[in-house]
Design a protein around this nucleic acid. Structure first.
Lengths: 108, 108
DNA sequence: CTCCTGTGCTACATTTTTAGTAGCAATATG
DNA sequence: CATATTGCTACTAAAAATGTAGCACAGGAG
């Protein structure tokens, strides 16, 4: 998987340009990334509670996404356990909050 | 893959609840989905131009995403060729436009 | 008509990613 | 001690993506 050799090899899959927006779109375009941020919007969850919230997604990919989101500075692991959004993460979450309203009127 | 039996069987991968927001997050959380919408924001592109814009992503997955996005009503194939956003698609794109500004200030 | 080019789209083998299940060390509580 | 929780990892099988090649169709030029 993501080779952790030395100082974090970043393939930036899905973008060879490295432009911030492309890197961000790639990160958020991985399975469960958006969902994780969404589920954490109301407050921190333990890893297992998060797993339950995400329809029992496999812990393999969940841990991978959490690591990526932590390295990106969107999510943090509080002392005493529990994953929560950072200030930056909350900011990002606010960005696509309107998606909820959009989805509700889209289902028709 | 997605069984096309009768009237479109939708496994809604990544969400067993079927809530609109979950379905949407799942769809947008697939590789290249967000990127495609992003690249179409300024106007229609031919399939090959879109492929070039998306860092030469493989046509296999690109076609798959385009089909999904078309079924969702976000993208359409204009007569005479060229993929473009629908009114709904443009609306959706507007939703996460602030992401660009966010990404720019996030890279630090 | 033939040749050429571009459109949307597909086949196929290889690689990568995810799913699903099990289990670990560490910590706490009884 | 047993029990139960935390975050996290190993492993194999399944699914999805990559990368390359090519198809049928349509339009234009010769």
């Amino acid at each position: 998987m993501a080779k952790q050799a030395g100082t974090k090899t970043r393939p930036v899959r899905g973008s060879r340009t490295g432009r911030p927006i492309m890197v961000l779109l790639d990160l958020l375009g991985r399975r469960w990334s958006l969902r994780i941020l969404w589920e954490l919007r109301d407050g921190p969850l333990t890893s297992r509670a998060l797993r339950t919230a995400c329809d029992e997604a496999s812990p393999t990919v969940l841990q991978a996404r959490l690591t990526e989101l932590r390295e990106a500075g969107f999510v943090e692991l509080g002392e005493g356990g529990g994953y929560g959004l950072t200030a930056l993460g909350r900011d990002l979450c606010e960005t696509f909050m309107p998606l909820h309203r959009f989805a509700e009127q889209w289902k028709k």
